[in-house]
Simulated assay, not measured.
Amino acid sequence: MRLLITGGAGFVGARLARALLARGTLAGQRIDSLVVADQAAPSADLCADARVETRVGPLLAQCEALRREPFDGVFHLASAVSGECEADFELGLRSNLDTTRALLDALRERTQAGAAPTRLVFSSSVAVFGPDAAVPMPAVVADDTLPTPQTSYGTQKLICEVLIADYTRKGYIDGRAARLMTVTVRPGRPNAAASSFFSGIIREPLAGEEAICPVSPDVSHPVSSPQRTVDGLIAVYEASREAFVGRTALNLPALNVRVGEMLDALEAVAGKAVRSRVRFERDERIAGIVARWPQRASAARAARLGLQPEKNFEDIIRQYIADCAATPQALKGLGR
């Protein structure tokens, strides 16, 4: 089979690519070719695999050429992040909405020419939920909670969910949208996502650096580890149409945790000195965005696919430490 991962050089995309290559199969078929498309080239280990092909550049510019390429499956992860979309409205529309429409039309063209519908998994977001004066957000957002996004990023993700559902209804694709929880702990440096601090308050202290937390320790949010996120994307792809149930998006599993509990877990795993490197300094812009996001989420449909969240945040921190075993600079704050 031939697969495409958009955003495949990014953190989640690259991890997904490695997981698929290690498995060698997906939905019972052997993976012969994996196309990784992103603004930047993927890491050397991915490029070294003979099954990997790369497409470098803005995805919107690549979609015309993709019309001529047959794909059995697509994982569409490419996206501008939340903070970018609030700061640059046109960027969000172009990167999230226009690009997704162009990709869907490339797949539609092949189906209309007689090819079988390509199976597509779209990485949506918990940011599709938000508080609206007419439709108050429940304490726990579920698969069937009415999405009322309060950010441009969440709005663009929701529009894409609905487009994918309609292209699926028309038989142009076999689409499934999975709402990702905030993925933490991400390696590297902070990005423009409003949720970036959820990783930063763990990552930087472990590296021996100060981290600034822009929100109160009482802020609660649904999160997931990188590995559980990748497992969820693969399970959604492999689910039968009947098991996925309908065409609407589902929530991936969430560990519902407060910022203070995250720091308690950091202290339990790494010690008080590491925790003390986190300083609270409120950022009204970030705090305002996060205040419009869900505090807790459930995932009943994902559970029926066999997916479960982590048991505690300490396990997520340990996963990050294990992932960084080959990069001791990332853990120099542990004093090892």
Results as ranks from 00 to 15, higher is better:
152 S>G: 04
91 L>T: 10
153 Y>C: 00
97 L>R: 00
132 D>F: 03
187 P>K: 11
93 L>G: 00
157 K>H: 08
166 D>Q: 14
112 Q>C: 10
84 E>F: 02
201 I>A: 06
140 V>A: 06
145 T>S: 14
109 E>W: 05
151 T>I: 04
214 P>S: 10
199 S>R: 04
176 R>G: 11
157 K>R: 15
91 L>D: 02
76 H>V: 13
146 L>F: 09
165 A>P: 05
113 A>R: 13
84 E>I: 02
137 M>S: 05
219 V>W: 11
116 A>V: 11
145 T>Q: 06
163 L>C: 04
126 V>N: 10
141 V>Y: 04
218 D>Q: 14
120 L>M: 15
163 L>H: 01
194 A>T: 13
140 V>G: 07
161 E>N: 11
99 T>I: 04
157 K>D: 00
120 L>E: 05
196 S>A: 14
207 A>M: 10
212 I>Q: 10
122 F>L: 11
212 I>T: 15
204 E>T: 02
84 E>M: 09
163 L>K: 00
158 L>D: 01
179 R>C: 06
106 A>V: 07
86 E>C: 08
158 L>S: 03
85 C>W: 00
117 P>L: 12
201 I>Y: 10
174 D>Q: 12
203 R>A: 13
199 S>E: 05
77 L>T: 08
115 A>M: 11
210 E>Y: 11
141 V>I: 09
176 R>P: 09
122 F>G: 00
130 G>E: 00
182 T>W: 05
186 R>A: 15
92 G>P: 00
100 T>N: 07
194 A>I: 01
143 D>R: 05
87 A>E: 10
199 S>N: 09
198 F>Q: 06
172 Y>G: 10
199 S>W: 02
177 A>K: 04
149 P>G: 07
156 Q>A: 02
171 G>A: 11
215 V>R: 09
129 F>T: 00
132 D>S: 14
205 P>V: 10
144 D>Y: 03
85 C>A: 08
208 G>E: 08
140 V>N: 07
217 P>S: 09
215 V>H: 09
216 S>D: 14
201 I>N: 03
218 D>G: 05
82 S>D: 12
140 V>Y: 07
138 P>T: 09
111 T>W: 01
136 P>F: 08
203 R>Q: 08
173 I>N: 10
190 P>Q: 08
198 F>D: 02
125 S>M: 07
166 D>P: 02
170 K>L: 15
201 I>V: 14
206 L>Q: 07
137 M>Q: 13
190 P>V: 03
78 A>M: 12
191 N>S: 14
147 P>R: 02
175 G>T: 05
102 A>R: 03
87 A>F: 01
154 G>Q: 11
93 L>S: 01
163 L>N: 01
213 C>M: 14
213 C>W: 09
190 P>F: 04
